[in-house]
């Protein structure tokens, strides 16, 4: 053990700040080593002398000096110091400010929580995606694509080879009478449907000429 560690242990032994094991080790050292005993006695003399240092009472005028300086300090802090003092005294002791602050904090937390939940609830509402450009007419589901109605499920590749049938305005009523199952299509303008296994583009000039919005038959 080096000198510093030895001195530290002896110093703690002097103060009774050792474990039983350390105590035993120090007692053995003291019994065996003259050098350790000298160090220990020297440390003891130092401690004893420090403890015997005369406890001098503060000079009588010190209190007056302190009071004067404190009074000057008090004047310097002025009104704000007094206000601050009041505020601090409320927070230091069991005053009103602390419970008030706790209540305020709880209220704020509740508000944030409730507001957050409301937003969350709003977010959970189902989104109703309306599809105004899709409708079922004459038993066929039709979607609006670039100014014409196209039957759902048609292969886009077949649109290019589709036959085009133009029904003049004057013939529309007759056409509708002959194909009553397709009569409602007359109102739609241009419609792409599958008829008898063929993709057909039907152009009803009566509806196209009237300028009626395609989805407002």
């Amino acid at each position: 053990m080096n000198h510093e560690a030895t001195v530290e242990l002896l110093s703690r032994f002097l103060d009774g700040e050792v474990t039983p094991g350390e105590r035993q080790r120090v007692e053995e050292w003291l019994a065996e080593s003259h050098e350790v005993r000298e160090i220990y006695e020297g440390l003891g003399r130092v401690r004893g002398s420090l403890g015997r240092l005369a406890e001098t009472a503060p000079p009588a005028h010190l209190g007056e000096l302190v009071r004067r300086r404190v009074a000057l300090e008090g004047e310097a802090t002025g009104l704000w110091g007094r206000v601050e003092g009041r505020l601090r005294s409320w927070t230091a002791g069991p005053g009103l400010l602390t419970p008030f602050a706790v209540v305020l904090a709880l209220a704020a937390m509740l508000y944030v929580l409730a507001n957050g939940l409301a937003r969350f609830e709003r977010a959970r509402e189902p989104v109703y995606v309306t599809a105004p450009d899709t409708r079922i007419v004459a038993g066929r589901q039709l979607s609006r694509h670039g100014g014409r109605w196209v039957e759902a499920g048609l292969d886009p590749a077949r649109l290019d080879e589709a036959a085009r049938i133009v029904v003049a305005a004057a013939d529309a009523a007759e056409w509708a009478r002959q194909r009553p199952e397709l009569a409602p299509l007359v109102e739609l303008g241009t419609v792409v449907v599958e008829l008898d296994g063929e993709v057909v583009v039907l152009v009803f000039e009566s509806a196209v000429a009237s300028g009626r919005p395609a989805n407002e038959p």
Binding site: E4, V7, E8, R12, D15, I39, R45, V46
Partner: peptide
């Protein structure tokens, strides 16, 4: 704390010796 007390006392001891 332990170390400072011990080293302080030891320095005083050595100085006084």
């Amino acid at each position: 704390v332990r170390s400072r007390i011990a080293r302080g006392r030891d320095r005083l001891r050595l100085e006084l010796e």
